[in-house]
Amino acid sequence: MSIILEVKDLVKHYKMGSETVKAVDHTNLSVERGKFTAIVGRSGSGKSTLLHLLGGLDRPDSGKVIIEDKDIYSLGNDMLAKFRRKKIGFIFQDFNLIPSLTVWENVVLPMGLDGRKINEKEVLDILNHIDLAQKKDAMPNTLSGGQKQRTAIARALASKPAIILADEPTGNLDSQTELEVMALLKNCVKEFGQTLVMITHDETVAQMADEIILIEDGKVVNHS
């Protein structure tokens, strides 16, 4: 299958007092289009930093992140922000929903920000798939944790990005809700032909992935 995301010799070091933390240390990896890839590692192994770098949320010290043949760090800040909005969907552990907007408004917000036309039928289709259609006019504070995360998933899917990056998306959920959200996420990603890269330390979640990348001390240990 073709490679949608490629990381070449990526380096990101932090200064913590007098010590240098090698959060990402000469990392190389690639993600295939349409696959669900899990990046697994203990906390502090640098996986969150890596995901931020994959999504253009930070800038590396050196190395390249290539998404759909485009070296994203060759872009200026404004262009990078635009590229990110258009091509990358994010799902975070703490959902990042806007409390004053309804589920529907939260889902279509990124497209609205970009001035893109909203295809209501498509968005509704996504909400149906993720079992949120009845909740589309609900406010986030009336939703359960699983429903909040499903809203965030719908939001990531709706803008039809090239790749979806998820950072411990089920970290705040109990184990049954975790299974439920993961099953829905996996299905939606497959249904809509999306590519998913997920960071997790949960071995049950990682089992659902097509590919597992193990990270230790900022390095890829095992790329299966």
Partner: peptide
Amino acid sequence: IKLPANVLVVVKDEGIGIASCEFH
């Protein structure tokens, strides 16, 4: 178990188990 959007079937055994490095 019936979850809101899924049916969950849990099968528990008392067998030899699986090493954690083999799970995936």
